Simulated assay, not measured.
Amino acid sequence: MLPTALIRQVLVSFSLVFLCAHGKEWKKYSYPDPQQDLLECGLDGIPSWICDPDQVLSEEQVSDVHSRLEELNSGTRCLCSSCDASNHGYKVAVAVMDKMSYNGAAEHVDLVANNFARYLRERWFSSGCGDNVLVLVTKETPQVYISAGPAARSKLPDRTVKSIVSSAQAQLASEDFQSAILTVVNGVKSEFEDMDTTVLAIIVAACVLGLLTVILVSVLVCLKLRSMKEDSKPTFFRPDKTRESRKSLAKSETHYDPNTDNVYVSLRENKTAEAVV
């Protein structure tokens, strides 16, 4: 039985011969997937988010880019409504090739390349909430194209994408593809990290505002209680004199004065009984 390493080398060599015979023009439907087509993508059979079937980069460079992509994913937070342990944060993938097939539309290079990048992103990231980005790099006409998912576009609008791509133009012109890819990946990462910092700042501001509100309410309540205590006066209650009034009425007599035609009440005086000797 042939060793696994030898079989792998034969398959890779066969793929290279096949590509050379076809001028290395990739169609979006046939470009390999780094999560499934492990031998073709050039990371020694390890699932990753970078595919370089034409070996534009060296094995060491592919491994370096792979490590950066892993750091970006683990260093950002998941934006989806449901996240599991494998979905740390944003997912960025890189597709590198010599040349893509324009299908007779060479005059519309940018349109074809953007469609190519979007197709690969949607195929490679078939699940999730769109918090993903695909970076497409072509060697024949050194260019970088970025396709961002719906959630990722909140931090990567067209203006930001153009700025990131422009920052890598000098490296592309000198065919330093590894540096160009890392420049783009780092630019994307910085935008995502800024988003995490903004969210954290909002949370901290909300907590501080809540604490200040509690303190203010407590002070107002204390001042109100103090004011009520100072303004309060003692209340005096009069004794019930109903019984005494009844006693007074019991000792009173009603008189009628025919001369004035008035009725008046006079109190009777207690008379002390005299002892008869």
Rank of each mutant, 00 (worst) to 15 (best):
T141C: 07
G89T: 10
G128T: 05
L72H: 12
D84Q: 11
S154C: 11
Y31H: 06
F125G: 03
A113G: 04
V135L: 10
T138P: 05
L39W: 01
R118G: 07
V112Q: 08
V135C: 06
P142G: 10
L111P: 05
Y90G: 14
F125T: 00
G89S: 13
T160I: 15
A95M: 08
D98C: 10
F116W: 01
V135Q: 00
N87K: 14
V96G: 09
Q35W: 00
L57V: 07
I146L: 09
A113D: 05
N87C: 10
E70P: 02
M97N: 02
S126C: 03
C78Q: 13
L134E: 00
D44V: 03
C80P: 02
R118P: 01
N73S: 15
L120N: 04
Q61H: 09
S74P: 03
M100K: 11
S63F: 06
V96Y: 06
E122P: 02
G42Y: 02
Q61M: 07
K28H: 05
V92Q: 02
T76F: 08
L72R: 12
E122W: 01
A95I: 07
S48R: 07
E60T: 15
V112R: 03
A148T: 08
V161Y: 08
Q35R: 14
E107H: 10
A106Y: 13
A117C: 08
S154K: 12
K139C: 01
S63Q: 12
V161A: 09
Y145W: 13
D131W: 01
G42D: 05
Y31D: 02
Q36N: 07
K99G: 04
E60Y: 11
G45F: 06
L69I: 11
D131V: 03
V62E: 05
H108R: 14
V133T: 10
C80Q: 10
K162T: 10
E71Q: 14
G130C: 06
V112N: 00
A106T: 12
P142M: 09
P34K: 05
C78M: 13
H108T: 08
Q36H: 11
H88S: 15
W124L: 15
C78H: 10
P157Q: 10
C41L: 02
V92W: 01
T138Y: 01
Q61P: 08
G42T: 06
E40T: 05
Q143P: 02
L57N: 04
E107V: 09
E59L: 15
C51V: 00
G128A: 08
S48E: 03
I146W: 04
S101V: 05
P53R: 02
P150D: 12
H108Q: 14
E60N: 13
E25S: 09
L120G: 00
L69A: 11
D44M: 07
A151L: 14
L156Q: 07
S48G: 09
A148G: 09
L72E: 07
D54W: 04
D54Y: 00
D158V: 13
E25A: 12
W49G: 03
K28E: 04
D37H: 08
N115H: 01
F116K: 00
V137T: 07
W124R: 01
V62H: 05
M97T: 08
F116C: 00
D158L: 15
H88Q: 13
S147E: 04
G89H: 11
N103S: 13
N87Y: 09
G23Y: 07
Q35K: 14
N132S: 15
E122L: 06
G104P: 03
E40V: 04
R68T: 09
L38C: 04
C51R: 00
K91Y: 11
V96I: 14
V137Y: 04
V56I: 14
N73G: 08
I46C: 02
